[in-house]
Simulated assay, not measured.
Amino acid sequence: MKFWLSLGLLLLTITNLAGQVIDKEKLLDYYEAQSYTEAAQYLQSIYPQDTKDIKALMQMAYCHMMSGKLPEAEQYYLKLNALEPGSIPLLFSLANINSRRGNAARSKNYLLEIIQLDSLNFGAYKQLAGLGDIPEIKLKYLKKANSLRNTDPDIAYDLSMAYREQKQYQKAYDILKTAIDADRDNFTLRQAQLPLANQLGKYKEVIETGEKLMMINTDVNVMNEMGQAYFYLKEYQKCAAIFKTLEDLGVQNEGTLYFMALSYRELKEYDKATEYAKKTIDEGISDHTTLYYTALAGIYEQKNQFSEALEAYKRGLTFTASSTVYYRLGLLYDLNLKQSKNALIYYHLYLKNKPDPEKEKEQITYTKERIKALTSKI
């Protein structure tokens, strides 16, 4: 209905501009088919290139924008802006075009111009917040937009997340509460409020809200927050059960396993508590931890800090066995620390760890040669 009303107004406007020239049926066909490129071309064939007719320029700018020809649309809007400076709708169009083209700086300038004309323009502040790349400036625009329309869900969510990052949990919670009161069925806002409620010790609220949300949609983030709330309410069986569900779904993490370990400990199920304490440790260790320690040890070697390098290599081995680390330790003991017996131990461990015979052919050959040489000296 809105489309046909808008289309009727559009045709009426153009008819008033040049009723004796424009073929209304042809133009109507273009709009019905959403053939905005053809519509723009048709309008350009009617009006001269240097036309200053406001309504004609507006229609051609709009058609170009709808057809995705943003440079052409911008040129028409710039002409309009020169003819009618200070028009907020025109400035919004220019801001949107530049934002879509990735020119954030120019888009900001148009939005700031809007604010100079209308210091209470919610839309301008909202878009400025979206373009903000400096946290402090983004927060400023979010706060202003929220003060103008505190029930807008997008602004409430973004402002709440900004406060949460600053650990201002009460502010973040209150911002969301106002928006939620205006839209009780907004799943995104209510879900975002759960971790804040947990931080503020509103554990019963987390459970009540979580149960309602789970009736709408089963969400692992909601379950995670409910599990934590159960733990702090000392409902350890429910805590363990909900986190076990997450584990069965394959979405466990260090935190969920930790809460399971603590819950089973409180339930005096010590075998399970031990099991999940070990799982927590394993989950907390990155597959790349050994690699990171190897890199650190290499840096120490470059600085001739051999004791520190030795400690870093051995620390890496506590996470996982590595033929590379065994080889590096062999070299360190052999060439820098001059400890032949220890060098032999790690050279043998390197070969025992079955290094790739093709990729590490030179290292394998060198290791075997050094084993012979060092053995002959002992």
Rank of each mutant, 00 (worst) to 15 (best):
E266N: 12
D271W: 04
S286W: 06
L257Q: 00
N217S: 15
I207K: 00
F231G: 02
A277D: 09
K204Y: 14
T245K: 14
A241Y: 06
Y276C: 01
E283G: 07
Y293T: 03
Q193K: 14
L200P: 04
Y232V: 02
E269N: 15
F231S: 04
Y276K: 03
P195W: 09
N224M: 08
F231W: 01
M215W: 09
I216T: 15
A229H: 00
L249K: 15
M260E: 02
A273R: 00
K238R: 10
Y258I: 00
N253C: 03
G250T: 02
A261Q: 05
D248G: 10
I285C: 03
Q191W: 12
N253G: 04
T209H: 12
M215T: 15
M223I: 14
A229L: 03
L200C: 02
Y270W: 09
V220F: 10
D248H: 07
Y232D: 07
M215P: 08
L246F: 01
E205V: 12
T245N: 09
T294N: 14
G210W: 05
N224L: 08
A240R: 01
T209S: 14
E269P: 06
L196A: 06
D287W: 03
D219Y: 00
Q237G: 11
M223W: 05
E247L: 08
N217R: 15
G201F: 04
D248V: 10
E254L: 08
Y264I: 00
A273N: 02
E275T: 12
Y230A: 04
D287L: 07
T274S: 14
V251N: 08
M215C: 07
Y232R: 10
K279P: 03
Y264T: 04
A277P: 03
F243Y: 06
T245Q: 14
M226V: 06
Y270Q: 06
I207Y: 05
D248L: 10
M214W: 10
K278H: 10
L246W: 06
F243M: 05
S263Q: 02
S263F: 02
N221W: 12
M215I: 13
M223V: 05
Y232L: 07
L233Q: 10
A192L: 10
F243K: 03
N221S: 12
R265N: 13
I242A: 04
T294C: 09
D248F: 08
Y258L: 08
A197F: 11
V206H: 05
K238F: 10
M214E: 09
Q191F: 12
M214T: 13
E283Y: 08
Q237D: 13
T289C: 01
V222Q: 01
T245W: 09
V206E: 01
L200K: 04
L291Y: 15
K244P: 06
N253M: 00
K204T: 15
K278L: 11
E208A: 15
K234H: 11
K202T: 07
N224P: 05
E269V: 06
A192T: 13
A229P: 00
A261L: 00
N198V: 06
T256Q: 01
L249H: 11
G284E: 02
K278F: 11
A241F: 07
E208N: 15
